[in-house]
Design a protein around this nucleic acid. Structure first.
Lengths: 333, 333
DNA sequence: GTGAAAGCGCTAACAC
DNA sequence: GTGTTAGCGCTTTCAC
């Protein structure tokens, strides 16, 4: 068995409560006793049982990070930011992946409601508008922070990037580079983030009298590749494509390579992406780069404000700007 | 307050233990009572307090995944595999990042020793040979599985890829493509994984009477870029480079782009990498692709065998082969 | 400054 | 088939 307060108390001929207080450096305990306890605890390599104290205190020192997936470079970077803050604050990070499945999201969120975690950071699944499970968290007073993909009907803290504006400047960029037939490649469903990007796109097109053309991808890669191929080989092939999701943009690249459509000569491509190596692609990919690490860090910091300082952060809506990095994929030849 | 067994017992005029047994579907309890309990629990949306049961049962249903970082595509994919298995088994995944810092690794591992987690999956930090903290886990009977980066002196379950052989075939591949001055780019420190790759490299060179040339990177990107640049501009520039770490290989790409050294004409490049988009790079990068998702999944499965079936998996050393995918970066022009 | 005792929510041995 | 009870390891009143 591992060493407990009880054992320390017995060996040191002290009461359990005295040891407990000594270990938490209570002012009620004499310096001398504290020293004895600390020293002995260190000698036995005492590590407190987190469950006993969690049970008693009603807090776990755990946070949940619920993500659609982690293969994506955006979420990897975000985890980094979140975990960094959590570790600094002495919290533990539980990671859950929903794989874009609302059922999983629901059951995961449900499990977050009985003390296993003190707070939740979430980037919601795409494609569905159910959100009662999130509201329930809320009712159970588990602080909740949205980052990147928010669920708009739930009024709580959120950290996002300026998606509308990003969609707008991405589109303007293509127009400036001479594109006149610009397609917006996105996923179906009601993901606020892609909607906002699309709205920015549409606004820019409207201002320039250009026709709107939205293409929808699916979860299946082969289907997407076939669809993209068809579009690129069609008579009115777009001369510019905006990938609202990194994965989709890369599928455009794959297709172009496969059927020898030249980027940027035949079609210019810009992507919402967090890829570190966009510059190493063929051709280097113009990106709207989201501040993933920053967003993760900020979201976590917000959560800890709610947890530790009991501050109400419900109404904090933080927007961290993305930056457009122009590269060869949108160059005028 | 949230709903507890006590409340259900009181409302249903049953004993706490009866409710507890009913909820765990014990055969001691009548079907009728079970039904009443289940129904009422569902109606109140009862969620068991994990800490109470963990405290009592001495197990947490949590596992720890300790990684150097997560920005890397390899570890992202591995987390995916691990989390998938954990979720299926009803376990929770705690993710910890060491950022290659042995001190952090030590303190994280220490925290895993008092019941917070039932088992640990780890890919150890590079560059240091301290491992007493790992041995301690061991002594506390916390099952431990190494994946990818193992700590060899600790005799426990491990899931790795065939690094020696991979190093060997990577080198042979370069030789077959006509390279005669082949450099191995790696990190200093005693990481078994890079050592094995290096040994494979050295063996292939020895068999072909080619001189060994090992280049060491650091944690600082600028330093690496400067070093790589110097090597590429030197009189006896290598005609082939093996990146034993994905990041280093990409730094070679960055440098080549910057100083207009042509891959593969001037220098051929092959990398140990899990990049999905290696084919989209300029030029497409030849890789030794590690089965990251598989490795994560296998490691987790092994851990659960130890946890659930109490099987001794200490002596399981599973090797999952990597595959060489030849692309343009090693093409003969 | 220290100790005794209750109790967090749950489980499991044992009694009835 | 159901209830009583003790206790997991810790914190926190409240006595002394």
């Amino acid at each position: 068995m591992s060493v407990t307060i009880k054992k320390i108390a017995k060996d040191l001929q002290l009461a359990v409560s005295t040891v407990s207080k000594a270990l938490s450096d209570s002012h009620e305990i004499s310096a001398e006793t504290k020293a004895r306890v600390f020293e002995y605890a260190a000698r036995l390599d005492y590590i407190p049982n987190p469950y006993a104290s969690s049970l008693k205190k009603g807090k776990s020192k755990n946070i949940a990070v619920i993500l659609p997936e982690v293969a994506d470079s955006f979420f990897s970077a975000a985890i980094n930011g979140i975990e960094a803050v959590a570790q600094e604050k002495g919290y533990h990070t539980m990671v859950y992946l929903t794989h874009e499945d609302i059922k999983r999201e629901q059951s995961i969120v449900r499990e977050c409601r009985n003390g296993r975690v003190d707070g939740v950071l979430i980037s919601v699944v795409a494609g569905d508008s159910l959100h009662e499970h999130l509201r329930d968290l809320y009712t159970n007073e588990v602080p909740l922070v949205f980052f990147d993909r928010v669920c708009e009907p739930i009024e709580t803290a959120r950290v996002v990037t300026d998606d509308h504006h990003s969609g707008y400047i991405a589109t303007k960029h293509l127009i400036e580079q001479g594109c006149r037939k610009i397609a917006f490649l996105t996923m179906p469903g009601d993901l606020a983030i892609t909607h906002h990007r699309q709205q920015g796109y549409e606004q820019a097109l409207r201002e320039n009298g250009i026709e709107i053309r939205v293409l929808y991808g699916t979860d299946r890669e082969e289907e997407n590749l076939a669809m993209i191929r068809e579009v690129l080989q069609s008579a009115d092939r777009p001369d510019g494509i905006i990938g609202s999701i990194e994965k989709l943009a890369l599928q455009v690249y794959t297709t172009c390579h496969a059927i020898a459509v030249n980027i940027p000569r035949d079609v210019k491509v810009i992507a919402f992406s967090h890829l570190q190596i966009a510059a190493l692609l063929n051709p280097p990919l113009t990106t709207i780069t989201q501040p993933a690490y920053e967003m993760g860090k900020t979201a976590a910091t917000l959560l800890f404000r709610a947890l530790e300082k009991k501050q109400d952060v419900k109404h904090e809506h933080i927007i961290i700007p993305s930056v457009l990095v122009a590269r060869a994929s949108t160059e005028v030849l």
